[in-house]
Design a protein around this nucleic acid. Structure first.
Length: 898
RNA sequence: GCGGACGUGGCGAAACCGGUAGACGCAAAGGACUUAAAAUCCUUCGGUCAUAGACCUUGCGGGUUCAAGUCCCGCCGUCCGCACCA
């Protein structure tokens, strides 16, 4: 891209002083104006096309952090842009307000969760409003609002009636710090996702959502989510964990004389590798397998071993290091394809009860874990798959399992020899399905998922009460809808740990809705991920009596662009997909996939600082100097040297946080918004630095100064598109302006905010010289400049909306403020001004650039060829030789090959 | 272990379908204005040699192509996710 050639020179003295840029006054002024005009209210009935942009709503922890600023700035750029492009935009905000921290605060500070939460919401609402986000605040709600959890209880009852909710006793993840159960998705590396405590295993009865009913649908649905990051789709795919295999029933060998009768006749085993059946070396059972339990009743050594396994499961977080251990039961199973072979049965610590059938057959030659186990217990290791070309005689295992299936052929496997593993799989499936054991086929095909049902009971107070009642005579009774909501009691005590609901007799005791006899309420509350699984639907009709207003929901959904952190890739995002399906089934919405576009944004990170004592220091406590190209940090307090550490996610514990309030007070919202979106692509982390925020602020002030300086000269001049007779300079300015309008629009559509901002810088650099010499410019140039500066206001607006309004106002007749950017359509660019009649093409000789050539854009090949060959540097290089080839890529490049 | 992403100046990064590598910013250096500072403005800024210019350069080694940061093969490194899933 060429720079516009314009006369440059020192700033001319002006007969006026430009108004000062005061972000605090200015931003407040425009926020009030937007409020007054209700610029960002979304209409449920509008002829304009809809666009739903949503950022993951925050937990009201007390204050917003820079991560929030970046997240909401991104959504706001899109929302403002789409609104300017004529869309009816829904851009709401709410609060994910139930959860543990409120109870912890209550315990520590002797407050109430409710009061604490609403105070935090008020503080954070004020902070978000100061950012100037184009939100429809009329739709705001918190999940702890009675009006919200009331509807959630209605949904619960509908889902219960639809068979999507059930109660069962099961082993659960118990967080000993938060004193509650956690879902599988909420256990990260063996620890609670929130408390960080090592999770224990407990048997409890709790409520489950039947997410597994939708395992297949949630999996195949991913294929259609083209506007989701591949990474997230893959993570969900792995989490759902579909596999295809066979359930094979193994008959037990007759007991040796003198052995105790066990009454066990067969063991069912799930396998994904039936092709390796002839390589079976052992069978292993989970410690909780019914057969293992039965054996433990008769055999004290088996009992001791299963007990040890259970302890290991709870105490050891890092299972990878746990040694493979087994207990030989002395029992044998008969090989299904060769009844002469007896396979020993073990109880092993690595077999999981809740996957497959809780029993495996080990094939040591073709599975790493089985190989280790066989070596330890001296079991035979017989290879049954070998690479093509190898035979039973030549193939050796090389001290490790051969786990390939591609390019393998069966060996040592009777009638399977020579088949590919896939063929062998099918053959085994066919034979065993036809083979009858005890009146039933010995095997059947089975599709298995890793995904398990979602346990949602939490033994906590600050959550949505589960609307169920236990009656001694009638059993489990749903609370009738007319009795909803089941309200959380007020004035509860947090003096003791545990769930206050469970010791609140007055709250618990209710008459049975069926028989009227005394009964007891469910005291568990719902996982807070239930709350966030449908809030985006509630935003479409936040006042509705029913949980949703289907017409509104179906109009607005799916969310066109959802923006949030990747940490929710399998938690919230999977639950929400399930919930939307559940709501579809119960008639609340008419679609299955809630989020059409998903974007996972990077974090805001910052350097860390540590003093000689090893204490973390905050950026405000240090100063950085540059000496001999090396940066050194010193503590402000005592001038002691400070070690500059790694750039890490902002966290309170490392004190590398920057408070948005401080930044807003110093620089204003526009600067903060611009900075968090510049420099790094939005999916990557952005490094916060003092120099960076200064730079962004410098740019904001520069735009303001430029407009303020030019405005008095331009107000009386009508903005118009430069025509041919207006001269080269006016035309160049107009071209630059129309081009930037197009490019910034495209960048925003692609969420390439950093690129859009780079273009803004470039654009301002190009306009600045003309503005500086504005006194000497013709009417035509001034007209072009006026339009260029108006365009600047529009393209700046998504990023720095207050500044944009101020600049736009400065350009209006007499500085009047009738039109505002927020309510004005995005200007149309003129395609005729985008493309040049002449293009400058690089000319390569043998692939190396040697010069440029200026040519008419639509020149034909022959003209180009002649012009290129006539060039001095081409002639010089050719030295009289004929070129072998001349490659012309229209409007791109020319390559002379000789 | 399995799966994935990514390696470009001092730093953050651009580079669309293979077509001028390093746009834009930060940091740095020099200069103008100023009594001075701040602010602002101008200039330089991947490396080597140098007079215009030439050569080298996108983690490393190969390959395909008129042309490779981009495609293919093989290494090396960093980060992320899952992890006894049968």
């Amino acid at each position: 891209m060429r720079k516009i050639k314009m006369k440059t020179g020192p700033m001319t003295a002006k007969d006026h002083t430009p108004p000062a840029y005061n972000p605090l006054v200015l931003e407040h002024k425009w926020q009030a104006r937007w409020d007054k005009e209700q610029s960002f209210a979304a209409e449920n009935a509008s002829p304009r096309p809809k666009y739903y942009v949503l950022e993951m709503f925050p937990y009201p922890s007390g204050r917003i952090h820079m991560g929030h600023v970046r997240n909401y700035a991104m959504g706001d750029v899109l929302a403002r842009y789409k609104r300017a492009r004529g869309y009816n935009v829904l851009h709401p905000m709410g609060w994910d307000a139930f959860g543990m921290p409120a109870e912890n605060a209550a315990m520590q500070n002797n407050t109430e969760p409710r009061a604490w939460t609403y105070a935090n919401i008020a503080a954070m609402r004020r902070q978000l409003k100061a950012l100037g986000l184009s939100l429809d605040w009329s739709r705001e709600f918190a999940t702890c609002d009675e009006s919200y959890y009331h509807r959630q209880q209605m949904l619960f009852l509908d889902m219960y009636a639809a068979g999507l909710i059930y109660r069962k006793k099961s082993k659960v993840n118990w967080d000993p710090v938060d004193c509650t159960v956690l879902a599988n998705e909420q256990v990260v590396e063996g620890r609670g996702w929130r408390s960080g405590a090592v999770v224990e295993s407990r048997e409890l009865t709790q409520w489950f959502f039947k997410i597994t009913d939708y395992a297949e649908e949630l999996l195949t649905g991913l294929d259609d989510l083209q506007n989701w990051p591949e990474k997230v789709r893959l993570m969900q795919r792995n989490w759902i964990g579909k596999s295809r295999g066979l359930i094979i029933r193994w008959a037990l060998a007759p007991q040796a004389p003198g052995g105790k009768a066990t009454g066990i006749e067969e063991i069912a085993i799930y396998t994904t590798r039936p092709d390796t059946l002839f390589g079976a070396g052992f069978i292993a059972l989970a410690a909780d397998h019914p057969v293992a339990k039965k054996l433990a009743q008769h055999d004290s050594r088996a009992a001791a071993f299963t007990e040890e396994c259970r302890r290991q499961g709870t105490a050891l977080a890092a299972l990878e290091t746990a040694e493979k251990k087994g207990f030989n039961t002395g029992l044998f199973a008969l090989h299904p394809l060769d009844s002469r072979r007896k396979i020993p049965i073990y109880i092993a610590n690595f077999v999981l009860m809740d996957y497959g059938t809780g029993a495996v057959f080990g094939c040591p030659a073709h599975d790493k874990r089985d190989f280790d186990f066989a070596q330890k217990y001296n079991l035979p290791i017989m290879p049954v798959v070998a690479p093509v070309g190898e035979t039973e005689a030549t193939f050796r295992l090389n001290g490790q399992a051969y786990t390939e299936t591609e390019g393998g052929r069966l060996i040592n496997s009777a009638f399977l020899d020579g088949l590919t593993p896939q063929e062998a799989f099918d053959e085994v499936a066919r034979r065993l399905a036809a083979q009858i054991l005890d009146g039933k086929p010995q095997a059947r095909r089975q599709t298995q998922y890793r995904l398990r049902d979602w346990g949602i009971s939490r033994q906590r107070y600050w959550g949505c009460p589960i609307p169920m009642i236990y009656c001694k005579s009638c059993g489990i009774m749903p609370v009738p809808k007319k009795d909803l909501p089941v309200r959380l009691p007020e004035a509860v005590s947090f003096a003791r740990p545990g769930n206050p609901l469970a010791r609140d007799a007055a709250w618990q005791n209710v008459p049975c809705p069926h028989c009227g006899k005394p009964a007891r309420r469910e005291t568990d509350t719902m996982d807070t991920f239930v709350d966030s699984s449908w809030y985006f639907i509630r935003f479409t009709a936040p006042e509705a009596e029913q949980p949703t207003e289907p017409a509104a929901a179906n109009h607005w959904l799916p969310v066109d662009q959802y923006i949030g952190g990747v940490e929710h890739a399998i938690l919230h995002l999977l639950y929400a997909r399930f919930f939307t399906r559940a709501l579809q089934k119960t008639g609340h919405v008419g679609l299955a996939e809630p989020f059409n576009g998903l974007f996972t944004q990077g974090m805001v990170v910052h350097e860390t600082y540590k003093n000689a004592q090893g204490d973390w220091l905050s950026p405000a406590e240090i100063t950085v100097e540059e000496q001999d190209g090396e940066r050194r940090a010193y503590a402000l307090a005592d001038k002691a040297p400070v070690q500059i550490g790694a750039v890490e996610k902002m966290s309170k514990s490392k004190k590398n946080t920057v408070d948005p309030d401080t930044i807003l007070a110093q620089y204003g919202a526009d600067t903060a918004r611009l900075f968090v979106l510049s420099d790094s692509p939005p999916e990557r982390d952005v490094i916060w630095s003092a120099a960076g925020i200064e730079g962004a602020n410098r740019f904001i002030r520069r735009i303001f100064r430029l407009t303020a300086e030019a405005a008095p000269h331009l107000r009386s001049i009508a903005a118009k598109t430069a025509a041919e007779q207006d001269g080269a300079e006016a035309r160049d300015i107009a071209k630059t302006a129309h081009r930037i309008l197009k490019q910034v629009g495209e960048d925003i559509e692609k969420l390439a905010f950093n690129r859009a901002i780079a273009r803004l810088y470039d654009y301002v650099n190009r306009l600045a010289p003309a503005v500086q010499a504005i006194d000497s410019k013709s009417e035509a140039v001034k007209a072009a400049l006026r339009q260029a500066l108006e365009f600047l206001a529009f393209i700046v607006a998504p990023f720095a909306p207050h500044l944009a309004e101020e600049c736009f106002a400065l350009l209006q007749q007499g500085g009047r403020h009738e039109k505002i950017v927020a309510n004005s359509p995005w200007p149309q660019f003129d395609p005729a001004l985008i493309s040049d009649n002449n293009v400058i093409l690089p000319v390569q000789i043998n692939g190396k650039k040697r010069g440029d050539i200026s040519l008419p854009r639509l020149a034909d090949k022959e003209t180009i060829e002649q012009a290129v060959l006539a060039l001095d540097f081409v002639q010089a290089q050719l030295q009289g030789q004929k070129p072998k080839k001349l490659i012309i890529v229209p409007q791109r490049i020319i390559n002379v090959v000789f």
